[in-house]
Design a protein around this nucleic acid. Sequence first.
RNA 1: GGGCCCGUGGUCUAGUCGGUUAUGACGUCGCUCUUACACAGCGGAGAUCCGGAGUUCGAAUCUCCGCGGGCCCA
Length: 864
Amino acid sequence: MELPKEYDYNAVEEKWLNAWQDSMYYFDRNSEKPQFIIDTPPPYPTGNFHIGNALNWCYIDFMARYKRMRGYNVMFPEGWDCHGLPTEVKVEEAHGITKSQVSREEFRRLCVELTTKNIERMRKSLRRLGFSIDWSNEYITMEPSYFVKTQRSFVQMYNSGMIYQQNHPVNWCPRCETAIAFAEVEYESRTTILNYLNFDKLRIATTRPELLAACVAVAVNPDDERYREYVGTEVAVPVFGHKVKVIADKSVDPSFGTGVVMICTFGDKQDVRWWVEHSLPLRKAIDRTGRMTELAGKYAGLTTEECKKAIIDDMKKDGILYKQEELSQNVGLCWRCKTPIEILSEKQWFVKIIADEILDTANKITWVPDYMKVRLENWTGTMEWDWCISRQRIFATPIPAWYCDRCGKTKVAKGEWLPLDPTQKKPPGACECGSSEWRGEEDVLDTWMDSSISALHVSGWLSGREPLLPTQLRPQGYDIIRTWSFYTILRTKALLDTKPWETILLNGMVLGEDGHKMSKSRNNFVVPEEVIRKHGADAFRQWAAIGGTTGSDIIFSWKDVVAGSRFLQKLWNIVRFSLPHLSDKPAEFKPVDRWLLSRLNRLVKDATEKMDAYQFDETFKAIRGFAWDILADNYIELVKSRLYGEAEGKEAAQYTLFVTIETLSRLLAPFLPYFSEEVYSHIKKESVHLQTWPEVNESLIDEEAEASGEMIKEIASAIRRYKSEHGMALNSSLSNIEIYSSLKDGSDIAGAANSRISLKTGKPGFELVAREIIPNMKMLGRTYRGRAKSIAEALRNMDPKLADSGSIALSVDGEKIILDSSFFVLEKEKLLKGKAVDVLEVGSAVVVIAKVITIPTSSQCTGR
RNA sequence: GGGCCCGUGGUCUAGUCGGUUAUGACGUCGCUCUUACACAGCGGAGAUCCGGAGUUCGAAUCUCCGCGGGCCCA
């Protein structure tokens, strides 16, 4: 059959995309094979699968396909982490409404509708990239079949005391009008104004004068002589006039501002610490929408910004504010909408964080690369308070709880009632107080409560079977170690007292071509669809494989993608050349065949080890190097003459080529699913993705075959170089070539050189003259330490002929030293006598070529 | 302010349990259209391995101090 000259990635990829069956990749619960379950990250259904996700999925797919070929029962599930604010915002935008303008059910329905549409789009991208996803294990967190598990995990942790309800300060986004967790707060350096105020008999400095109404104390450092006398007394808060205590606390910095600080409920995290330590009262001056409360008197109803301006103006007028200066400080922002957060005290639901248990569990997991574990440890060590899991939003998993209308008691659902939405359904039975009027909890769960049980879900937890825990692999980016890794470890430990995964594989971030994080404002944004359109999925996957070391950041580079598509073209040409010559009938090998097969088996060994260590870049580079350099540039060139004619050894070359191409297809299958399938389809009737990973045939790894093959290759290439340097065409023939070596078969060299070859043993009748002594520094340094340098120097300077006997005597600094041949290498020069010949030295072989008279080409004449 | 990673030819990168020709890709220059491939082959040029100090006979590699970049966080 005739193969097209150009590899048409588009046609090939489309063809196999339609031909492949999903069932090829299904996990089999009844299989005898060892399980390999991957806890795939469920992406947020934005509608676009971005390049960072794509990199991660490439890693997952390399592993999934590899493990399948290695005989594992692989589960590569695909989840969708649906809940959350961004979808709510999109829905509000799209329909021109706010969440409070429609009913909760209606708003949720709109969110589900949008999410469903987005998932559909992203599924297409996943398929096009050739990922071997097990679609029978897809999960969607907004569906009852999933969130029933989220709710049951909530109930179980509530019953075991791991979840509790409390009035506690929480991070609050006034724009989103919800509590958020620490993991959702990010910080940014901003310039603000530090205001100096006359504060009764003291002077204080504050960046947040709008919080004066919430001032509950004033603090000084206990060692600060200036204020010692005031500690324990009361002062009146300016503008508002209420009295607060002056307290002493050593964490007050005397050199900051005036050395006196006001404590408000709450200006920042430090206020919370002081508030707890000194048991201070609570004054709420800011409400859930970020506006001032009644407590703020005439400022009530203003936003914090408006209030700040107004109160500063007033205090300036009244002479309270006497000085202002600029100050750069870090402001906590909501990671979704970048609004500065407030700290409000609210009744919220919390998950207990037991740092020791988390660290202990993390230590039982293999971290790849291992230094990433430090990030989890650092994060765990900085937790200030428990994980706030309640959110005042709508599109999320409902908290299955109610409050008694009469006595206010909280009732949490029983596991068997779930799933349910407490705002839609009342609990059976009455409260202990006798009332059966219930108010459903309107707060919903943090999205991480959904996704932190992904490992449990895919393992089959609560599906009527024993969960297959731990799963084998968690692949994810290092940016969500503090969230997804942290929470998953916490939850798996709390719910099933085990670790979620055996191994966690961290991938780096994808940076734009300029080395910065991809962002629309930097205009360095690339989407996978664009790459696929221009170069195909297999080229994209090659960039993912070789763009960088696993775990490190990787820069997107069009050059790498182009190099990938060139490699496909090169491979295509190799296959196009080889196909008519393939034969699966074994035959007696020639030295070059044994060389290639030895190298091939070495490659298999190498690739297997590197895949097991998640070194995709190393694996792929090794395969590419073999295919391009060893197979194409050398082996094929050497056996062409055998393949074309009817000479002896033709069958051996055909068979060798068959074995090599067949093995190469399987090695490439995890990386280039489309290309390898196309090639394999021309060799066998089955899918390459249902084949086993190549086994190493140790008996074919043969040092001797490699040495003589290498020699043949080197000689052929030396002759090629000789022709090139003498301006001869590469297919021109040389009258006679004598090769002095241990080689027993020169036919392939003759073919490649298109010349007659005479094989000789021994050495040609040349005079060998020692030319140079090269010191072996490693040996000299070990033995002679400090004198190594001067000995080496002496060796270089002495007459090389003196070393002919094998050892050498010299005197350094008046001392006689005798060095045997292990301390130096003697470079010998071969002098020719008699005929005019050119001599090429190739390792231990000597190639003698009858001298040709070079007719200079015109370019050489004009050249110099 | 803390943590983690990184700084190697023009560009990107390998090498990092110390050993003297530092790997490869892209680019560049020269030659060659050799019955698979000019999206190729062959050959060449191009690096005092960010700076400084230290350890050592010997440092891209180990230690310390700088400088620079990136990410995660406070």
